[in-house]
Amino acid sequence: MQLPARLQQVRVARTAQKRRLICQAGGKVMLEVSDLQAKVADTDKAILKGVNLTICEGESHAIMGQNGSGKSTLSRVLVGDPQYEVTGGSARFQGQDLFDLEPEERARLGLFLSFQSPIAIPGVSNIDFLRLAYNSRQKALGKPEVEPLQFYGHVMPKLDTLHIDPSWLDRSVNEGFSGGERKRNEVLQLAVLEADLAILDEIDSGLDIDALRDVATAVNGLKRGNTATLMVTHYKRLLNYIHPTHVHVMRAGQIILSGGIEVADVLENEGYEGITNLLKKEPALQTT
């Protein structure tokens, strides 16, 4: 009966209030989600049922959970997907109410979502797309926009890190790309845009071992003291490359357990049943 003993060592935050105190000990609060509720706009089906999450600068969070538990919905609601409607709660990012901002304004503020299945945009080249996106962020930051030639200088080193062939730049965004190539392209965009909070929705799915290492190296290379990462994943293998400071478990639209990498160990060894059993034995660990 080692597990409960180990888990007792897990840093558990039971309320958003308490999490904030922990944050203040570390970096500045970047994202603060309180009691977030959301539904699918078309069908009125409630997906998020009171999510609490606080992410501070310098932290890496991982959210794990079964299919349909609301992980991807949470990431999409945060970036403003019109498919979902927020029905309650709040989310503040960099001190601003996220739900007062349009999706493009959120992006310009430094929020980035790497999509689970990135869409193809025929006819728009990667280089044009990247430059447009980069320049909108530059403009928002009050910095000068860059010319095409200058922009190549900015992009080339990022291509090297990700082992991406420069010929990609002239291809249409994600058109004819394999699943793995699309994921790499998402990380290339993240690298170019230098976002403050990167939400990586199943960035590891569809990647082979080498590609996963490349992508993880790139993500780690982008970490700075004032940035943060939120990963949505099913498997611990990603967490072996990108070490999380916090691991959350989501079930039925709520975060039910928060801790360190140990939580991922429990999941890896015993599955979601392990988490259920644990919470039965130690109800005090439940966060909501």
Partner: peptide
């Protein structure tokens, strides 16, 4: 496609223009 553009900070109006032209 429009949403994808906006999540990269490109405004909806500009995104429409680019998509139509492309």
């Amino acid at each position: 496609q429009l949403f994808y553009f906006t999540t990269r900070g490109i405004g909806a109006e500009q995104a429409r223009k680019i998509l139509v032209y492309s």
